[in-house]
Nucleic acid binder design. Structure first.
Lengths: 113, 113
DNA sequence: CCATTTCATAACCATCTGATTATGAGAAGC
DNA sequence: GCTTCTCATAATCAGATGGTTATGAAATGG
């Protein structure tokens, strides 16, 4: 009963993760956090192209998807990208992407990046 | 000007891909196609839990995201999972997941799968 | 203490999206 | 030829979602 939990366990977090990643603004925020490290809402608003309340809401979704963590310091809130948050999606990719073609051959074609 | 095209090129397909993958029913269809190979709309409807028109529409989205291909044979249409379709997402993962933590360490924790 | 900064929440709106039923167009079978 | 099967599209609808402005709470700084 421990193995073979393809559905039911992962799918919930996968759903939240894929949904979180399916928005361009959200990905922009996440990408910026990954590249630049911990950032305040203020800084994120500056680069997001949307209003501050919207940034807060996007960050909230990323947080609920476990893709970021928040740290309050005075009046600022600093958000940080959370590495392990992507794990369920990576697993999904590994199962279906790999099962289905060569094991992440595409990774070798990255070069430029 | 040739390199550093993180945005603009990939983001379009990434958006469509993540959106396509962000729906549970769509993932179920795709997963089934990956595991069982080419399937008719009829067969996919049987396992989807939703109506046939909805299955057609979901397949349409998967097709536009380049995740499946369609082959008409008589009155049936057979859909097939398309391996390379995931590439942009895999690349995104590689760039941000890797840049951000150890290079896909999560993959090593797959065991059960 | 008052003004300002920083953030989150509320109220609201337009649009997208998933789902349904109804319909229509082609193939197959009798 | 008529019926049946397979699929896609149209018409609709409820609810989620991205966006905005307005507001409020809490911390900082004169």
């Amino acid at each position: 009963m421990t193995t073979h939990i393809l559905k039911g366990d992962r799918s919930a977090s996968c759903d939240e993760l894929f949904k979180a990643l399916s928005d361009g603004t959200r990905r922009t925020l996440l990408e910026y956090l990954v590249r630049e490290g911990e950032q305040s809402v203020h800084a994120l608003t500056a680069i997001s192209g949307v209003s501050q309340p919207m940034v807060s809401r996007h960050l909230g979704k990323l947080k609920r998807a476990s893709l970021v963590t928040a740290r309050r310091a005075g009046r600022e809130t600093y958000y940080t990208a959370r590495a392990k948050g992507l794990a369920p999606v990576v697993q999904w990719m590994a199962v279906y992407g790999a099962l289905w073609s060569q094991r992440f051959t595409a990774l070798e074609e990255l070069d430029g990046y």
